[in-house]
């Protein structure tokens, strides 16, 4: 049991260092996901299975997908196809796959062996829920307000971008109109020149 803890902690440290030293953003995201999964295994070994599941679902599932969406949206303009071809070279994903494979082996070993808890018993979801909605009720309300504020703020910031894009599109059509107007004027001068 202690060996699994040290292996998972070592994988977390190694993958975090590799994440910080990558030059490519998507490779860094891969190593960050491996690091979060390793921390999730550490939580499970420490006797916190509820938090381990939350870490795997919310952090490695939702927040990293958000990062990936933003990376994909930022990569639209500049040389997208060539960078995609560079990223798809085999051998890039061997590092994360090896680290994640070690983590999967650990999880299989833990699932086959005894229950979680490093020496002591685990603190299950029931106690966490009782503490969360008992003495920490005001904290839950504050967290819900914070999430609502984050939702409204993110929507506002993203909405002004589309509004700005619409304005740019509008000026584009104006430029087009001015261009045709110039063409008409030029045709008029042409006609007048031909008339004279």
């Amino acid at each position: 049991m202690e060996l699994t803890f040290y292996i998972a902690g070592g994988i977390a440290v190694i993958s975090t260092v590799l994440m910080l030293t990558r030059l490519n953003l998507v490779h860094a995201l891969l190593y960050l996901i491996v690091s979060l999964l390793a921390v999730s295994v550490v939580f499970f070994v420490l006797g916190a299975p509820f938090v381990a599941a939350l870490e795997a679902i919310v952090y490695a599932g939702a927040i990293m997908v958000l990062f990936l969406f933003v990376v994909m949206m930022l990569n639209i303009g500049r040389q997208a196809a060539e960078t995609e071809r560079q990223w798809l070279t085999p051998g890039i994903w061997t590092g994360p796959v090896i680290l994640a494979g070690i983590l999967i082996l650990e999880v299989v070993y833990l699932a086959r062996g005894a229950s979680a808890g490093l020496g002591t018993g685990a603190t299950g979801p029931k106690e966490v829920g009782i503490a969360l909605f008992g003495p920490y009720m005001i904290g839950v309300e504050l967290a819900s307000m914070l999430l609502l504020a984050g939702l409204v703020g993110a929507y506002h910031l993203g909405f002004r971008k589309t509004e700005k894009l619409e304005i740019q599109h509008d000026t584009g059509t104006h430029e087009g109109r001015a261009d045709t107007g110039g063409d008409l004027i030029l045709a008029g001068t042409d006609r007048s020149a031909r008339a004279t």
Binding site: V58, Y59, A62, I63, L66, F67, V70, M73, L74, L146, L147, A149, G150, L151, G153, A154, L157, G158, R160, K161
Partner: peptide, 14 residues
């Protein structure tokens, strides 16, 4: 962290 990352990534896009 979820709220912070949502606002931060919207700011990055902007």
């Amino acid at each position: 962290a979820a709220a912070e990352v949502a606002v931060g990534l919207a700011l990055v896009l902007q």
